[in-house]
Simulated assay, not measured.
Amino acid sequence: MSWTLMLHGGAGQMTPATLTPAQVEGATEALGRALDAGAAVLAGDGSALDAVEAAVRVLEDDPHFNSGRGAALTHDGIAELDAAIMDGRDRNAGSVAGVTATRHPVSLARAVMAHSPHVLLSGAGADTFAREQGCEAATQDWLVLPERRAQLEEMLAGGGAFDVDMKYGTVGAVACDSHGHVAAATSTGGVTGKRWGRIGDSPLIGAGTYADDRAGAVSCTGSGEFFIRVGVAHEICARARIGGMPVTEAARAVLDEVRAMGGTGGVIVAAPDGTAAWHFTTPGLYRARLSSEGGREIGVFGESPGAA
């Protein structure tokens, strides 16, 4: 049987006018490496769950995105990281929010799924669990980049207003393996200048991340407060499973609902039949996909939708 892998590195104001050629080159190169990491798992008859974790780990290490190293900073200048992972076979899931000392939050989320009785851990408790599980640590000095600190200072100097049209760099992956099982993973630093322990949609199962073998796997990126209110990831799967909508149509319809509320962003979806789609309502979406049939594609600009 065939397999499919799709990635995103954030949706937002990505245009030739807002990104330098070096930024585009760096981001697309990283997407290619992440695609290779996930594809190697799937080509070796590995699981969709292993593939999405492998791909997201690569992106968490790359400073071109807002996750792991290079994450957006809180109002107090701290990298607080969120991530989630979900297995479509049994809808088992794990997620973390506000972690501050872990190199790969997606792997910590998987540890929550595999080695705890819980789904979502946050803050100091999640950091303690990471140490107990032996997850690879990272210092704030390693996670925080000068560019992100400069972005925070610029935002605070301008009054610190939340901007739903800012450039998002959340990363995610969805896959369907050769056995027809799907999985999704998402990782982010949230929004620049976030306060009071704010948590967005990425680590919330059903909002920013969801996987169900009966429908598909979804990873989201965008204005998290709106994605939470709509329950975007689960809503796409529900429209496909209950309403019988193709995932391409379901993604479009749900993001139209988000846009009507005032939010923007993008989604990637992998269905159990091997269909893969993305849809976004912003000028750009860092994206990549590959299947056992080939069709390698990596992009930043251009119009939505994209389906295969």
Rank of each mutant, 00 (worst) to 15 (best):
42 L>K: 00
42 L>R: 04
42 L>N: 01
43 A>G: 07
44 G>I: 08
44 G>L: 04
44 G>M: 04
44 G>C: 04
46 G>M: 07
46 G>N: 00
48 A>G: 04
48 A>K: 05
49 L>N: 11
50 D>W: 01
50 D>I: 01
50 D>Q: 09
50 D>G: 13
50 D>M: 02
51 A>G: 00
51 A>T: 07
51 A>N: 03
52 V>E: 08
52 V>S: 14
53 E>Q: 11
54 A>C: 08
54 A>D: 06
54 A>R: 08
54 A>F: 03
54 A>L: 11
55 A>L: 13
55 A>T: 05
57 R>H: 12
59 L>P: 01
59 L>A: 03
61 D>F: 00
61 D>I: 00
62 D>H: 14
62 D>T: 05
62 D>F: 03
63 P>C: 09
63 P>I: 11
64 H>W: 14
64 H>R: 13
64 H>S: 13
64 H>F: 06
64 H>D: 08
66 N>Q: 12
66 N>K: 06
67 S>R: 01
68 G>P: 10
69 R>Y: 01
69 R>T: 07
69 R>M: 07
70 G>R: 00
71 A>Y: 03
72 A>Q: 04
73 L>S: 06
75 H>N: 06
76 D>P: 15
76 D>Q: 14
76 D>R: 14
76 D>T: 15
76 D>N: 15
80 E>V: 06
80 E>C: 09
80 E>W: 02
81 L>H: 05
81 L>W: 03
82 D>M: 09
82 D>G: 10
82 D>L: 10
82 D>R: 10
83 A>T: 12
84 A>R: 10
86 M>C: 09
86 M>E: 06
86 M>Q: 12
86 M>I: 11
87 D>H: 04
88 G>M: 00
90 D>N: 13
90 D>R: 15
91 R>G: 01
91 R>P: 02
91 R>W: 02
92 N>Q: 13
94 G>M: 06
94 G>Q: 10
94 G>L: 12
94 G>S: 07
95 S>V: 06
96 V>T: 01
96 V>D: 00
97 A>N: 11
97 A>C: 13
97 A>K: 01
97 A>Q: 07
97 A>H: 06
99 V>F: 03
99 V>C: 02
99 V>S: 07
100 T>R: 14
100 T>Q: 10
100 T>I: 02
100 T>D: 03
101 A>M: 07
101 A>D: 05
102 T>L: 04
102 T>M: 12
103 R>I: 02
103 R>S: 09
103 R>C: 01
104 H>A: 10
104 H>G: 07
104 H>E: 09
105 P>K: 08
105 P>Y: 02
107 S>Y: 01
107 S>E: 12
108 L>F: 08
108 L>V: 05
110 R>Y: 03
110 R>V: 06
111 A>K: 05
112 V>R: 14
115 H>D: 14
115 H>M: 09
116 S>M: 10
116 S>Y: 11
117 P>V: 00
117 P>D: 12
117 P>G: 06
119 V>Y: 07
119 V>I: 14
120 L>Y: 04
120 L>S: 03
121 L>P: 00
121 L>G: 06
122 S>R: 14
123 G>W: 12
123 G>Y: 06
124 A>S: 12
124 A>Q: 15
124 A>H: 11
124 A>T: 12
124 A>C: 04
124 A>N: 02
125 G>Q: 13
125 G>L: 14
125 G>W: 11
125 G>C: 11
